[in-house]
Amino acid sequence: MSVVDLVAQVVRIATPYLLAAAGGVIAERSGVISLTLEGFMLGGAFTAALGTYFFHSLALGVLCGIAGGLLLAGIHAGASIRLRADQVVNGIAINLLAVGATRYFLRIAFDSASNSPRIAGFNESPGLVGLVENPLVWAGLLALPVAWLMLNRTAFGLRVRASGEHPEAARSVGVPVGRVQLWAVLWSGALAGLAGVYLALDQHQFSDQMTASRGYIALAAIIFGAWEPLRAGLACLLFAAAETLEIHLQGTSLVPPQVVEMIPYALTIIALAGVVRRVAPPAALGRAQE
């Protein structure tokens, strides 16, 4: 196996992390905890499969996937920003809702308890060609640099950072904190939905709980990257590289797969404990706003 193939595999695994992390980092910096990425992603994967199957169109499938993520994000934002429900409780509920609702509609739409029928996808050839011809991979690679530009070079980004660090001060100079957070959460829903689209199209179906904690890995990457988009992107690539390594070590019993599974989470805890350097979340993260 060549180095190029290896890199291609890392990018393939990293794409959903990159997309979801790019959305989540904006939401987190605006002060809203992003443990909903998992649910948004699952919802997006399902609606993408639904759209692709019933409309026979990849483009519409992608749009449906984004809409699925947006729908859940809208519910989350409505409850936890507009109605000031606790973000963590509501976030957990959104994730439960995503699992339950996708199972429920899987039953209704496809009469199955486990997976959808096969759907189309982008170019399936393995290695570099399939990768280069998948627009979602490009979207993933660009997502975090775009998030960096958004946060650091736009007025919206400034408002996002102000809302997350010092909402009272932000409000006193006329920043509509709630609305900024609403847009940030919707943005994270759209991007996490897109990550779900990638998964569904890559695996050519939707299957029950197919996101398999990828949303939490994206969250871990955001935190391990100290809430900086570019560092979060590197963290995504690092976690994906560890998984790639694990795939190639399989059968050698050199490292148990469970140890590799732990890496993103364990590294994040270590980073939080300040062993290497202290990482601090946005000051107002998770605090209910008006």
């Binding site: 409850a79 109605l83 429900a85 509501n90 509920a93 809702l97």
Partner: peptide, 8 residues
């Protein structure tokens, strides 16, 4: 859960 969290 959402209803309780949001209505509190």
């Amino acid at each position: 859960i959402i209803a309780v969290a949001a209505s509190v």
